[in-house]
């Protein structure tokens, strides 16, 4: 699987990458990263991505708008919303926009990732 993590917090992306590499090295071929929706769309144009872990609140283009565009452009790419618990209302909007699953940032763990993979 080729994964793209979209988040405006570099530290969080690194932690996320560390977790994937540590626990899902067998299934993850490559991990890309983007700090906002626009960068995300640029990468999608260039590379074949299977799963996008999408943050909600970002500068330039937020998660909801980016997800809507991804679903429009790339029907096969799966989007997983990554959010804080306080943003659950927005997660609904993400799901409406086309996200397949969601992960609560506070609960980020191999199990949470596994659960999201399994629903794809």
């Amino acid at each position: 699987m080729v994964i793209l993590i979209v988040d405006d917090n570099k530290q969080f992306i690194e932690a996320f990458k560390f977790l994937l590499q540590e626990n899902f090295a067998d299934r993850v071929e490559e991990i890309f990263e983007a700090s906002n929706g626009a960068e995300c769309l640029d990468i999608l144009k260039r590379d074949a991505i299977d799963i996008v872990f999408m943050d909600l609140e970002m500068p330039v283009m937020n998660g909801i708008e980016t997800t809507r565009k991804i679903i429009d452009l790339y029907r096969n790419i799966k989007v997983v919303a990554v959010s804080f618990h306080s943003e659950l209302e927005d997660v609904k909007k993400m799901l409406e926009a086309g996200a397949r699953n969601y992960i609560i940032k506070e609960e980020l763990s191999p199990e949470a990732i596994e659960r999201s993979f399994s629903k794809l």
């Binding site: 530290q11 969080f12 996320f16």
Partner: peptide, 12 residues
């Protein structure tokens, strides 16, 4: 935006 992700990362 700032502290939340840091703490989440710490947790990871």
């Amino acid at each position: 935006d700032e502290i939340g992700p840091l703490l989440s990362s710490l947790k990871v």
